[in-house]
Structures are given as C-alpha cells and as structure tokens.
Design a protein around this nucleic acid. Structure first.
Lengths: 341, 341
DNA sequence: ATGAAAGCGCTAACAC
DNA sequence: GTGTTAGCGCTTTCAT
C-alpha cells in the first residue's frame, strides 16, 4: 500500500529552515494570532521553498479532529444513487461546506461488510461527523453511530419516533396542500397512489391526503387508495390502472412520487383520458421524470438546497464542544403548478 | 469540531486488561501471525469488553498508510454525476474493493478551492491512492497528483499523450466496429454525429468512423459529419436535422453517444423516417436513454465493470512498494444489437 | 511573541 | 511468542 511520499518535508524542517521553533510554524499554518508579521512571512517562505504539506494523520492525532465529514448513501438499490434527488443533496451539502476547511467524503454503505468498515472508519476518528441519506427502516447504521457518540444528522426518518437528529421535508403538509389544491379546483373524486406503507415517508404522504379530505369534509373511501410496491413508474402505472378500474369517474390523482405520477399519466393516456382536462395529476418530489412529462406535471417540491444546508448546520452544531440534544427539523414544501387543475 | 469521543479506550488499556504488551495487541488487531491462540483470545476478549476501536490517525501516522482510496469526480457539470455511466463505475470500483480493508471515498472536485483542498487531503496522506473520473482536457488535477507522487489512475484520457496511468474504452475500435456493421448490412450513406471535437473521446470515435469507411473503400464525405456542441439529446437532435437536410438519401447514422442517438431518433421520426427500416441508428455507450427508446437502439457498449476492476488493480500495483512505470489499458467494447440494421 | 517539551495512540524493530 | 522501545509529525501548554 501507498504512503505519504518519503522525503516529504516535516514541520520540523520548516522550522529549522525558517530559524524558528516548531510551535511558531504550527501557529502560522493554522492562522493563529500572535505571530509577528516578519516571522510569519519567513515561515511562509520556508514552507513554499520546501513544498511543505502538513501530515494530516499527525494533525488528527494531536488535534483530535479530522476536518472531514462523511455523507453516507445507504440505498440498497444503488442505481438510485443517480437520482437527481441524491445528486442535488450532494451538491447542496458540498456547497454548504465550501467555505470551511472540511473535506466532504461520499461513501456507499450497502452491505454488512461495508457497514462495519465504515463504522470503524468513523469511530476511528477519520471523520468528525456523519450525514446519512436514504436510510431504510431496518438499517442499524444510525443507531450504531449514535451509540458510538458520533455527531450524526439524518435526511428523512425511519419512523415517527426517531432517535437521531434529522431533517425531513413536510411530507404530510405537502400532500395535504396538493390535495387541497385539487379540491379547491373543483375536483371531487380524488384517488391516491401511495408508496409502500412500510416506509414512513409513504405513510406521511398518505396521511396528508386523508387530512386534506377530512378538512374539506369529504368522506374518505378506501377504494380510492392504492398502495404501490415501490416508488417507480411501473408501480404508478399499475396503481393507476387499478384505480381507473375501480373508479372510472375519478377526476384527480395524488401520487406519492413524481415517478409514480409519470406512470399514472401514461396509464391515463392509454385509457384515453386527457390530462389534466379529464383527470388532474399531482406528484410528490420534483425530479427529471416530471420534466420529461407531457404535459408537465404539477408537483410538490422539496427544498433540497435548504435540506442540505440545514443538515450541515445541525451537524456543525453537534460537533461543537457543547453537546446538544438531538433535534428534528421539518422543512416546508412548495406546490409547483405546471398544468392548472 | 468533533473528535474521537473522549474516554475511548486505547490499545494500551487493552494490553493492560489482557495482561499483555502493546505489541501483542497490535499483532492481534492486525491479524499478524506468531501469537499463541490463548493469548489471542484473551486479547480479543479485552477488546470486546472495552469496546476498543483503533485510532486510525495514530495507525496512519505510525504505519504510513491510510487504508483508503479516493474516487474523484471532476465533472464541472455536476448533474452528470447522476449518469448511469458514473453510477456504474462507482459500483464497480466499490465491488473491486469489498474484499480489502480499504475504504472507498467519493469526492467531488469542481472548483479551484475544492481542488486545492483535495490535493492537501491526498498529499496529507489521508488516502493511499486516487482514482480519477471524467477529467477534462484542461484539468490540472492529474498532473498535480502525479507531481506529488501519489498513485493515480485515470478513467479515460485527456489526449493521445497522457502522462498518468489510465484505463480507457476502445473508442476508435468500437466506432469502427459499429460502422463496419452498418456497411456490411448494406448501408452505404452513413452519417456521423460527432461529439465536441475538443474532447479526445470524440476525436477517437470519429476516427473509428473514418477508419471503417476507409477499410471498406468508401470515400469519406465531410458533409456527412456533423459536430455536436455536447453529448446531449438536443445536440443529437440538431445534428440529425442538419444531416437530413444535407443528405435526404442517408440510410444510417453513427452517433458518438447513446444520448445523441436518442435525439437523432426523434429527429428522424419527426421527419417521417422509419427506424431502422429507412435509417439505421447506432450510438456509443449503453445507458438508460437507449433502454427507453422505441425501438431500442443498437449501441456500442463499454465494459464498465471491467473498467472499474482494472482501475483498482492498476492502483493497487502502483501502491505496491516497487514503483511501477505508468501504464495504459484500453478495453474492448461490445456491439449490442437491438434492432437489426 | 516564541521556544521547549510533553504527549496524541499506534506500528515495527529489536530484544529476550 | 511476547514485552520493550523508539519513533511517526503534529498541537498545545508552559515557560520565557
């Protein structure tokens, strides 16, 4: 295995060359105050001449910090890694970290081996904190990290009772808003294409649907709700077909994801319905399938940039010396109307 | 900032508890030979009881290695990060590393700040080697890493004369095979939709097109070649439109990417041509657009799993004690026929 | 303002 | 086989 190149100059050599003590060099490279300007410049020249680069292992060991945080993807279906949802979160988190000296490390933790390796990596002190994405209900990783006392912030939650700090979109509220919009537009027979209900996010979105109906005094009918097997387009297509079968009089649909909404749209077309004239469709999220759809679908958008920023902020707070209690942040969603219902 | 939790047991405490020396504990946690079985078990018990986890900074410092490699994405258009091409490479590299104790770290290096931060991270000894993806011609990162003496392997190249070890697909050969296939199927007027020619990969693919014509004794006509502005669907659409305008008699097209091929397909449809009856289409790569296309397009597939495995193998060799000269590996592509020409 | 010195927790070379 | 010891290169008091 490799190593930091032999012959790499050390802080001590820099000190010797600059004719100062090691402590002074340390102060200079850490931008600490209390160094005479002339001294500082002398040290900087020595650093440049030698091509000195601090040994990060030594710094970690002595300084008790890694200046790095991990952003962990635990999605078993690794193809989802390419989803715009994750891409944008990665970008948002990276952005939030640009003005800090912190290196962002993305890691895929899919198998048990990888989980164990990563926990050793994190507990071993190579990162100061961990950001978690797409954690499934049965994933033990958050608890392992919490038990190890590692600052951790999760995106989404595994259930209503979550044990670690998390940031989530207002799934129930977003769904409620969408369905309310449909009701106010005069739609009355509104179907729901739910995600798999063993996932908390799907439960929340379905609850929002029911809440909206209830607030409007509309009786819920269980035959108007179909649970998809997953959030895919195929699943949405099947669900929509089923829904049309049960309720040919349907005039609107709320789908728990934009991908499912796209599937629903295709099913409606295949059945000869016009969208949105005959049936209005609203999906959750706001990613590429929606963009490629014709007509473009109205969606409930999650504030991904804000989610990323918030995760970083919470993590930084947890990494501060004063340990904070874990917290929850729920961010508002936005209804993006692309075809009027 | 955070730190490895205070009160974390050290190797010394484990040694004390197990009643052995520190060296012995070190041997046990590193699975070194030469430890009596009973001793080993005693140590392991102490480790378990104390919940000991090695401090990786100390290990790095003393052992001169990080047990981690970075996979760097330098794509300025970060949305491409979600492309199946990259997703699959990430997965392939991860797979190749599962049976090693090496932690894979993905990093995005888009801005100058990030480049500098990453180089300090790598030169600082936090990774043993670096894998580079999607490096653009003007990117200084590969040279910075090479100059720092860091084991580095690149995916693709920036030009014919590359200064670091790389793995690339046989772009010219793949294109040649595709065009030869079209010629042998009786197509005679074959257009080429090239990628932007300031990218080496585009040059190679276009050269393969010309090679095939030449081998078949078919005269090349410059009017049959259109250079797209990028590899997108829109670009492919525009190029195809232009091509049809110039050569209504066209009976086949080779596109430098599957995405462009999809765009070409749409343009052909819009012009009333049937695919592949009137015009056969072949694209390079093998990603989702092709799958979603109707009819499915014939493509030149790159062996992504093999590319990932090869990159890891080359990196491991470079990380061995004996410094090896840099090398180049070109991997064969495969023509995947989905609609017969 | 700056130098000296004491670790940080581990690996590896060396003794026994 | 196993204990002992000398660093690895840095941060951080504590003097001065």
């Amino acid at each position: 295995m490799g190593r930091q190149r032999p012959g790499t100059p050390t802080l001590e050599e820099v000190a010797a060359r600059a004719g100062v003590g090691r402590g002074t060099v340390s102060r200079v490279i850490n931008n600490a105050a209390g160094v005479r300007d002339s001294t500082r410049r002398a040290v900087q020249r020595a650093i440049a001449e030698l091509g000195y680069v601090p040994n990060l292992a030594a710094r970690s060991l002595a300084g008790h910090r890694a200046d790095a945080v991990a952003l962990v993807m635990t999605e078993p279906d690794w193809r989802l890694f390419g989803e715009p949802f994750f891409t944008e979160i990665v970008h948002a988190v990276g952005d939030a970290l640009t003005d800090t000296p912190v290196q962002l490390l993305l890691t895929l933790v899919l198998t048990d081996t990888e989980r164990q390796r990563f926990v050793e990596y994190a507990r071993g002190g190579r990162v100061d904190g961990v950001l978690l994405m797409s954690v499934h209900a049965e994933d033990p990783l958050p608890d392992m990290l919490a038990k190890a006392g590692l600052p951790t912030v999760m995106l989404g939650r595994r259930s209503g009772e979550e044990s670690v700090t998390y940031v989530d979109a207002d799934n129930a509220g977003g769904a409620r808003g969408a369905v309310t919009y449909l009701l106010e537009a005069g739609r009355s027979t509104i179907g729901a294409i739910s995600g798999p209900l063993d996932m908390y996010v799907a439960q929340c979105r379905l609850r929002g649907y029911h809440d909206a109906l209830e607030s409007a005094g509309v009786a819920a009918r269980s035959s108007l709700v179909v649970e998809g097997t997953d959030f895919t387009e195929e699943s949405g297509h099947r669900a929509m077909t089923e829904l049309l079968d049960r309720h040919p009089d349907l005039d609107a649909v709320f789908a728990a994801s934009d991908t499912m909404a796209a599937g629903a749209l295709h099913a409606l077309r295949a059945a000869g319905r016009r969208v949105p004239q005959d049936v209005a469709v609203i999906g959750f999220d706001d990613f590429h399938p929606a963009r490629r759809t014709d007509p473009p679908l109205t969606t409930v958008r999650q504030p991904l940039e804000e989610i990323g920023r918030t995760m970083v902020r919470l993590l930084q707070e947890e990494m501060e010396d004063t340990p904070v209690a874990w917290r929850q942040v729920i961010l508002r969603t936005e209804l993006v109307i692309r075809d009027s219902a």
